Simulated assay, not measured.
Amino acid sequence: MTNSIVAALLGLLEGLTEFIPVSSTGHVLLAGYFLGFDSPGRAFEVLIQLGAILAILGVYAGRLWGIFRAAPHDPQARRFIWAVLLAFLPAVVVGVLAHPIIKTVLFETPVLIASMLIVGGVILLLVDRNPPPVRVTETESIPLKTAIAIGFIQCLAMIPGVSRSGATIVGAMLLGVGKRAAAEFSFFLSMPTMAGAFAYDLMKNREILDAQATGNIVIGFVCAFLAAIVVVKWLLGYVSRHGYALFAWWRIGVGAAALLAMALGG
């Protein structure tokens, strides 16, 4: 299997898993590990995520425009913008300080990734089955202090396998946010978070990205964008009706299968 085909498959996997609480990075890293995919500086796994973020921008363009247009005269719109920005700040600080450890240690430890998939799946299952009382049902009504707390919880996702969307959704639900509003806030928070990660990782790795690596990133980027559009349009309706149990069991199954394969020398 050529690198271009693997890059396309990994891009599709990224787009399909970025916004569901199963850890897109964990899935892409584990799949790349078993497929023998070579990624200089692990830049591919980070940079293709921007494709998924552009999908969110496309789907939510009208709503975003409405929020920014209303901000000068609507206190709720202004508060929502501040909520997203404040939730984004912890990831900036922790991401910059921990970047070397994340890329050279955590990204290179498949056993840790698989274990975090299982642990996160168990936590997601428990929270989904026993949700705390809901105090916030609208995304734009999330209080600033709740948004900041969600931002700190998001930092746990720098451990691959935890899941950025999983951490923010579970954190929001534990803080009294409804399932649908928690998923939507996770969508909006992903925009500055992943755009910032893209810019910082590109700056750190631009000198080691040759033509082949750049070509693979472009392929993965496009595939992630196309797959993410489908997922974003489907996810909120599914979550509202069925919750997150399916994703929890998926995490547990994938993590267990990966550990078994590694134990057997796969």
Rank of each mutant, 00 (worst) to 15 (best):
D210L: 04
I219A: 10
V222G: 07
F152Q: 10
E184P: 05
Y200V: 09
M194P: 01
A213V: 11
I217A: 15
I159V: 15
L174P: 07
R206D: 14
V177G: 01
E138F: 00
L202V: 05
F185W: 05
Y200N: 08
V230A: 14
A172K: 05
E207R: 12
P160H: 04
L156C: 14
E140D: 13
A147S: 15
A149R: 08
S165F: 06
S190E: 08
S163M: 12
L144S: 12
N205K: 08
S186N: 00
L174S: 07
E140A: 14
E207T: 09
F152C: 13
A149D: 08
R135G: 02
S190R: 09
A182L: 02
E140S: 09
I169Y: 04
R206A: 12
R206Y: 13
G176Y: 01
G178W: 04
F188W: 02
A213G: 13
A183N: 10
E140H: 13
C223R: 02
E140N: 12
T139K: 13
G161A: 12
F221A: 03
S190F: 05
L156I: 08
A228R: 07
A182V: 07
I169M: 10
I219T: 09
I208H: 09
C223A: 15
A183E: 06
G176M: 00
L189I: 02
I208N: 12
T139P: 09
M173T: 10
I142P: 00
F152A: 15
A197I: 10
K145R: 15
L209M: 11
A182E: 03
L174Y: 06
A228N: 03
I150P: 04
L174V: 02
K204T: 09
F187N: 06
Q154G: 12
I153S: 08
A213D: 08
T193V: 15
F185H: 04
L144I: 15
